[in-house]
Design a protein around this nucleic acid. Sequence first.
DNA 1: ATAGTTTTGTTAATAAAATAACATTGTTTT
DNA 2: AAAACAATGTTATTTTATTAACAAAACTAT
Lengths: 207, 207
Amino acid sequence: MLPEKTVERLSMYRRVLQTYQDNKSEFIYSHELASLLHLTPVQVRRDIMLIGYTGTQRKGYSVRELIEKISQILDGGAQINAVIVGMGHLGKAITNYFNSKRSKIEIVAAFENDATKINRIISGIKSYHTDSLETILEDTHATIAILSLSPPEAQDITDRLVFAGIKGILNFTSIPLNVPEDVFLENYDMVTSIEKVAYFVKEKIKK
Amino acid sequence: MLPEKTVERLSMYRRVLQTYQDNKSEFIYSHELASLLHLTPVQVRRDIMLIGYTGTQRKGYSVRELIEKISQILDGGAQINAVIVGMGHLGKAITNYFNSKRSKIEIVAAFENDATKINRIISGIKSYHTDSLETILEDTHATIAILSLSPPEAQDITDRLVFAGIKGILNFTSIPLNVPEDVFLENYDMVTSIEKVAYFVKEKIKK
DNA sequence: ATAGTTTTGTTAATAAAATAACATTGTTTT
DNA sequence: AAAACAATGTTATTTTATTAACAAAACTAT
């Protein structure tokens, strides 16, 4: 099992490499990849070492092979299905953004309570009423859920998602969720991020 | 200067405390605050120690005082102005979300290129054409920028923001930005987050 | 009042992440 | 062919973050 930070960077390596692939050389040096992401060459080499890929000395890494290896590590070749709960602005932002990327992860369904949004295709995703969550999850075999709904319902929905077999949750609501140990939970809170920026700006200016 | 992770948690403590304040007791124990956020009591106590606040033994922390102390640390009492660049779904999601919270950080202007969105009030924020970025920044004395625009323009906008005096950037675009050393840059990438969840789900199932 | 309990505050230990150091290998130059 | 160079791969060190350990204080019960 790779370190969290390495996994995050692998995702970024792959994305950068995919755009690099289209126009540039067949090989890439660790310092080139590093500078594309503002990292150090050592960190790039260490991450690549951890996934067991090995480049050729003096030539660097084969872009194609490296993408392949990272993909194999990150999604293991298998298609992964995700659902999104809450199709407000955030939900639409995520789906729009996500569908424009090449990825083995596919958002296969959205859930909403707002009647005007149900049984329509929104941002390319078929949207269902929250009531049919269990049925759709069974049909689609989704293992991941993205939560972009309003806080009050978040824990209820989470319980139902987990019960229906969801194994990973990306939580954009500001409330801390309760999940069993075998479910991987990743939280992201925009307000916290902005407050963090504000704090470090203040500290930097102080100096 | 506090550790990054502590700053993040302080932001979350404050939020949780603010809702706690309304209905519950005057004091709170470290283990209570911890369990509200799924952290350990030790971590809570250590963070609180780092900001130099001290509770009373056997009674816990005064909710009011702790909120005050955290606020003093995070925003130092001063109002902080932020702008947002890009008022697509993501921009709207952020502003809606943010304006519903009590905070010393205020989003004072939005920038857009889309003519239909300019000189209107969107999600409660006055929206301007990107051309007037420099003028508005001078007027509002904003120090923080949130980037929720489409990638191609991101670096250009960043250069202009930095030149106009922005000291902190929260970047939601997927491209890595170049900023001078004295500007604090925080990146958040949704695709990376989802791919991370997918990886750890896969690994957990494997076991 | 004394012993026991509960909670804070702080130091010590451990774990995770990043960085530095360097050995190795293939390429180029002379 | 030998020396110099430039890149990778890996181990060692340092830094950052978390967790554990425990002393001190304040309340409770006997």
